[in-house]
């Protein structure tokens, strides 16, 4: 009988914790584990290219369950392809809804052109009908409220949410919602209403202290916005029940102009929101995203940007501001596949125009169909195929990459088509650093839990 042989998975990555422990991660299973300095040499030996043969010791057996070691007859390429196919399940749907395409801000780096206002009543009706007609086959529905500035159309969000909640409750569908908002209209009263409408995750961008933020994220008439946004967030922190479940990702877009202000700003945020796990940071470099001022933007050199993201993130963690949960979910299997590349995801414009991508709204190849008032969708499947079938299957480098199951070569199909370059994620580029930060965040949370237990 042939001796059983185990090989290290090609989807492994490893890092080292601050206390010398080994951190191991697998992008196909999403498992992350740590090993003591005593276990480390045994583990590293088992993960050598030649693998291990025969019966596995108690130390090595868990490596199989987590996917770090795989039987030598397993086709990991087939695993990755199967994972890709699993995105074609028809019982999940993600809709990015633009209740308005207008915005009260005119941010310097914005790529949008704000061609129209509120969603037409017939499009609203079409959306309600579409979800009602799909309900029988759905198990999971997630809605991202987007725009424009979605809070300009707060009443429409309410009207649509009430209908969606009724439909999803009736059909026992797992429903979740999130919102990308500038935070200007996010008053306490409206925040409470949004929570009732199951909007639980909010991305709100603040680009530094008042003088920095107001110089780049200002009102259409030029007025400042910092004080209003911070005032709203302070009220939410002070007045919303401590046990209420939500996450606010404070996104900080940085470039050469505000680079030196990010840490002082994080200090300021930590004073206001530190040690409340619901307020989290999400740092990203400003890019040339297609706006009219692209040529004037003082964007960071990409090497600086890729380092600073994690430097700022860790700085926040040290001050009591957690890293956004987006980061950890981005390294899970399929976690970095863009919505534009997922078969059951659509962007719905205020006029019923259907898109795949939120960042190329004026490009013909992104106009993939139309939502009709009766709830049907008129879809150009050739255009959809362009977004959904690119990525790993046409890129040999992606096929050989440890991160393949997480992004499938499709983190940003738009970046690939515009630049001809591979759209690797910031997480993948600094995976050792990211794994260390996930370990560190875990340590901080455990210490907090211990403190809570001791107090009670």
């Amino acid at each position: 009988m042939k001796t059983k042989r185990w090989l290290p998975s090609r989807f492994n990555a490893m890092s080292q914790a601050d206390n010398g422990e080994l951190i191991l991660y697998n992008s196909y299973t999403g498992a992350i584990a740590t090993f003591t300095p005593e276990e480390k040499p045994i583990i590293l030996s088992a993960l050598k290219r030649e693998g291990v043969s025969g019966e596995l010791s108690d130390t090595l057996l868990p490596l199989v369950d987590s996917g770090f070691l795989v039987p030598d007859d397993v086709d990991e390429d087939a695993r990755a392809r199967f994972l890709h196919q699993s995105l074609h399940r028809t019982d999940t749907m993600h809709l990015i809804v633009m209740p308005t395409e207008a915005c009260n801000f005119r941010c310097t780096y914005c790529y949008q052109t704000f061609p129209r206002g509120n969603m037409n009543p017939e499009v609203q009706e079409g959306l309600k009908q579409f979800i009602a007609q799909k309900a029988n086959s759905l198990q999971h529905l997630s809605i991202s409220w987007f725009g424009g500035e979605p809070m300009l159309a707060f009443d429409i969000i309410g009207e649509l949410s009430e209908s969606i909640l009724e439909t999803t409750a009736k059909h026992n569908i797992n429903y979740s919602a999130e919102m990308t908002t500038n935070g200007y209209f996010l008053t306490l009263e409206k925040f409470r209403a949004l929570l009732n409408w199951h909007v639980r995750r909010f991305m709100i961008t603040i680009d530094g202290m008042k003088e920095f933020h107001d110089a780049r994220r200002f009102l259409t008439g030029g007025g400042g916005t910092f004080d209003t946004i911070i005032g709203n967030l302070k009220a939410i922190k002070a007045e919303i029940d401590k046990d209420e479940d939500f996450e606010i990702y404070i996104r900080i877009n940085f470039d050469e102009d505000n680079l030196d202000n990010v840490k002082p700003f994080i200090d300021y945020l930590a004073d206001l929101f530190g040690n409340d796990r619901r307020f989290q940071t999400f740092c990203r470099p400003v890019g040339r995203w297609g706006g009219e001022h692209d040529g004037d933007l003082p964007i960071c050199d990409h090497r600086v940007a890729e380092t600073k993201i994690w430097e700022f993130t860790e700085y926040g963690m040290d001050k009591g501001l957690p890293m956004s949960s987006i980061v950890e979910s981005a390294i899970m299997p399929t976690g970095s596949v863009c919505y534009a590349a997922k078969p059951h995801s659509f962007v719905i414009g205020a006029n019923g125009q259907l898109y795949k991508c939120t960042c190329s709204l004026n490009e013909d190849f992104n106009h993939v169909g139309r939502l009709l008032p009766d709830g049907s969708m008129d879809i150009d499947y050739d255009k959809v195929a362009f977004w959904v079938t690119g990525g790993e299957d046409k890129d040999a480098n992606c096929q050989a990459c440890f991160f393949r199951p997480a992004c499938q070569g499709n983190h940003c199909p738009l970046y690939r088509v515009r630049t001809g370059k591979r759209p690797c994620t910031f997480e993948k580029k600094k995976i050792k650093q990211v794994l260390r930060l996930i370990w560190k965040q875990n340590q901080i949370q455990e210490a907090e839990q211990l403190e809570t237990i001791e107090r009670s």
Binding site: I23, N26, T29, G30, A31, I32, A33, T34, F35, E39, I43, T59, P62, L63, D65, S66, G67, R79, F82, L83, S86, L87, R89, T92, H140, E328, M332, P333, T334, G335, I438, W439, N442
Partner: peptide, 15 residues
């Protein structure tokens, strides 16, 4: 070995 994140199946991942 301490597990920070458990392994999940392709079906769970695709939710």
């Amino acid at each position: 070995m301490k597990i920070l994140k458990p392994a999940i199946s392709p079906q769970q991942a695709a939710n």
